[in-house]
Design a protein around this nucleic acid. Structure first.
Lengths: 226, 226
DNA sequence: CCTCTTATGTACCAAGTGGTGAGTTGTGGA
DNA sequence: TCCACAACTCACCACTTGGTACATAAGAGG
């Protein structure tokens, strides 16, 4: 093998390449391609993104895309896998075990809210992948156990809430997750058409707290109403 | 041989389908192009759709696309305008004035639910347009008053509910609309990735009633909780 | 019947598309 | 030191893309 930089994968390594230090580094080149491709695919969709365009924004050449990834589609799949991988990593850091059920639900919903707001390009990739009926995602093995964290944590909270008698006992954890996701994803994914039609920017910082509270209220009300 | 096939007319056509077989009919040609283009753009996105592909599925030629619409982008805008126009027409048929507030909200949410489920290709177009940051929609005048119906009806219901003391008095109509839309749009728009990740088909007919009730419960709980 | 406008069909193109053949150079290990 | 191979560059291509020049046929009106 070749020069392995000790840098053990700083994930958000963007195209911040030093122009002077132009050494050979497979990991760095690969990461740069992925970063640029992620931005490009998220920006224009799979069909809209151009390999040539990605190449031009690289400090290396188009040939390297094919050298490392094989083709446009494989590059796109790699982008998806990396994006989902990062999301999983973040979700696993959730720790709400010490909170009482209602507070825990609010916290979990709030974290999901923050998280989606902080990663609009991920939401875009998800939207794009849905346009393609998740056909690339379906063939990828990189999403094993991707569902578990979020839903497991949620199920545990619901269980505690039921035991304490504060939550209804007929609510499914995945239903709750679906509701939370729907709210959070919609805000980002449908931001533009919603703004044009209803003249409201759902991501306006001025209404952020209100929206965040709205989500919490919504879920808690549902869980505590009989 | 100029005999036109007696049109296997896709669902809702714009041009009055006269039984008379006309060899030349601008309205019909235009409508056919729009119908095929709608299917194609919804299926593959703006960049993914091919003018040649649309042309091949036509009983006329590619030249007609440019004759009637000018180009790919203008055709796409026309598709968007027609789609939104139809949606508006449907929304204006909502009549829940005679119901008591809680039932009215449930009915409105349920109608929205049904409506989104019945028009997946519209949801796809909306997703696609969001990928393009609604830039085509923004420049189109065809959406004046598109927001009014849904939100006005909702506001009236909330008003009555407040007057009768069954609803909270601090809930914004557009917030409620946003929540309902989020739930309904998410089900269709994110169906595929959600199925792959969470192994649940949100559009599975077997869980349709449950999902529909869930949305009603969610909104009513929020409106009636203090 | 003739003519003029509208509607339609055929053949074609320049620019861009994803993708590659083949050679060049840096670098770690023997 | 030197070599083998990974990392990289550059020029190139077959094919598709959106778009168009031009010929022509069908009706409406006179």
């Amino acid at each position: 093998m070749t020069a392995r930089r000790p840098e053990s994968e700083p994930p958000t390594d963007a195209a911040a390449a030093r122009p002077v230090e132009r050494t050979r580094d497979a990991d760095r080149t690969r990461a740069e391609i992925l970063a640029v491709a992620t931005a490009e695919f998220a920006d224009r969709g799979y069909a809209g993104a151009r390999v040539n365009e990605i190449a031009e924004k690289l400090s290396t050449t188009k040939r390297m895309i094919y050298y490392y990834f094989g083709g446009k589609e494989q590059l796109y799949v790699a982008v998806l896998e990396q994006a989902y991988g990062r999301i999983r990593a973040l979700e696993q850091q959730v720790d709400v075990e010490h909170l009482e059920p209602v507070a825990a639900i609010r916290e979990l919903a709030g974290l999901t809210f923050d998280h989606h707001e902080a990663h609009p390009e991920f939401i875009r990739l998800v939207s794009i992948e849905n346009i393609h009926r998740a056909e690339h995602l379906a063939g990828s093995p990189a999403l094993a156990g991707l569902a578990a964290p979020a839903v497991d944590v949620l199920a545990a909270i619901l269980q505690r809430g039921r035991a304490e008698g504060v939550f209804r006992d007929d609510v499914d954890a995945l239903d709750v997750h679906q509701v939370i996701s729907a709210f959070c994803v919609f805000r980002t994914a449908n931001r533009h058409t919603f703004r044009v039609i209803f003249d409201r920017d759902m991501l306006d910082p001025a209404t952020r707290d209100h929206q965040r509270r709205l989500l919490g209220d919504l879920v808690v009300a549902h869980l505590t109403t009989r």
